[in-house]
Nucleic acid binder design. Sequence first.
DNA 1: TTGTAAGCGTTATCAT
DNA 2: ATGATAACGCTTACAA
Lengths: 339, 339
Amino acid sequence: MNPTLEEVARLAGVSRATVSRVINNHPNVRAEVREKVWQAIRECGYRPHAIARSLVTRQTQIIGMVIPQAVTTLFTDPFFPLLLRGATETCNAHKYQLMLVLFDDPAGESEMYERVLRNGYLDGVVVSSATVDDPLMPLMLRDQIPFVTVGRHPDRHVHCVDADNMNGARIAVEHLIRLGHRRIATIAGPANMIAGQDRLMGYRHALAAHQIPVDERLIVHGDFTEDGGMIAMQRLLPYEPTAVFVASDTMAVGALKSLRQAGRRVPDDIAMVGFDDIPLASAIEPRLTTVRQPIERLGAMAIELLISLLQGTRPAAYPAHRIVLPAELIVRDSCGALR
Amino acid sequence: MNPTLEEVARLAGVSRATVSRVINNHPNVRAEVREKVWQAIRECGYRPHAIARSLVTRQTQIIGMVIPQAVTTLFTDPFFPLLLRGATETCNAHKYQLMLVLFDDPAGESEMYERVLRNGYLDGVVVSSATVDDPLMPLMLRDQIPFVTVGRHPDRHVHCVDADNMNGARIAVEHLIRLGHRRIATIAGPANMIAGQDRLMGYRHALAAHQIPVDERLIVHGDFTEDGGMIAMQRLLPYEPTAVFVASDTMAVGALKSLRQAGRRVPDDIAMVGFDDIPLASAIEPRLTTVRQPIERLGAMAIELLISLLQGTRPAAYPAHRIVLPAELIVRDSCGALR
DNA sequence: TTGTAAGCGTTATCAT
DNA sequence: ATGATAACGCTTACAA
């Protein structure tokens, strides 16, 4: 059995309350007594019991990292690990802990919600990669669970941090325009994911800004997987684009395969720009020009925002806080700019 | 304020104890009363407060996933996310939660240990990718924190699950031998990582089994990074191996670059086999023959073992439990077998 | 089968 | 500045 406050108190010849004050750095303790107590603490190897403490303070210093669709795709690209790294580093800095909440099974989501998110163990929650229609957000709003989403959310009550997907996409497409392309296709993301919508909007904005009419046949939706990219590219080929903006590198890899099968060379016959800058992007042939989002910083900012909300540092504003971090174009071989 | 047992009791017209019994499925409650209580629970939306419960049961249903050196390398290859997926899935199945404990800073390790691992929040711990000399293990043994390591550990008190690194490496090297190679070099892992040691041992065993004398100049240590692989390969080239077994795919990618610079073709001039089967392995040119370890199952098994230890399902054996999962050779282009 | 009451290890509100 | 003492919400003997 671990020693308790009571035992430290006995050892130091003071009351439990005094020991508690020493532990929590309350000012009203005589220096002499304080030292005596610390001595006793060291002597018996006392450690405060976080559970007992939490029961009375109603705080656990634990933040949940919720990832609703813990699907395969998430685990092959580096989004997830990088986000986690940014998040944990920030947690460490603030002496918070991170609890991982992955929903493998959408059916079990409500059970999980009740059991994990509403059980008092979490001070707050960061939700990542949720779809627009994810049922989690309304529930958390209803139950007043403090949370921040990674990836913006349409509900104006929802605090969020996000990469500037729209401008990232716009920059990518404008890069292609600047290289002389006019028939620019896009393989967009799923329509129910905001990131997909935003990148598509960036594509449209870029064309509009340069008075290039949008040919809807040049817009095909993929599902952010490699296979999805392959299929989408095949559907695009008949319309003979000279360039294509692919809304994720993983899909771009698939698209590249389709093009190779069709005997089209990249970037000579068709130029390509991806999105995400996964490690593969710089390893494949041709090296992929792409848009990099500051994933690690997104994780860090989400935690930072949540903690400031929890501690009341930041007012719980309405409309909610929305932090947008810039995305950056990484020029490599697939766009043809380096020739 | 969330409703408590007391309120449910009042609503149902029974005592707090009876409500508790209903919640915990104790048999000795009249069916009629049980129904009445459930009704009250639904009515007021009661949820048990996990913290309060933990304070008395001394169990939190939380498992810590500790990764001591959360270095960059860990976040680029898929080991970490796959391990996490296996672990969380198993946790979900057993209604446990996973808390992520990443040590970015080795100096803060002891503070972290005291604050996080010894504060009562964790029922047990899974430690992954620790080095042989990691100070964590002795501490946890001393404090009797139940734990399982991913990757075997020399201390016979330590429960662990591991891929069969030695046999995986042996199979890889024997594959090269079978293809006719005799001058087989190896780029080994760091000497303080057991996985590195084991893979090197597998290399030696394979040569020994085929009466091929070991040329120590053909053994070079890398640090599991791409740059490390590049440098190691450069040092190996003067000794003119006809094949090389690289103890990690990431290093293999680096080695491949060195070979390309030196004008050697793979597999024609020199055959190569890697280890890990990262996604890049099948995407680069030439596609890498490699050894795949069942990472996701390792994560799952670690949790499974830990939980069985926690629940006393499995006796806390001495020597400790050691689970070894087989590794598998994935034959692609870099070894030359498919020509 | 059900209720009463004593904790679990803290923090926090009072007195002193 | 320090010490009793009452919560916090739950489980669990022990009694009835």
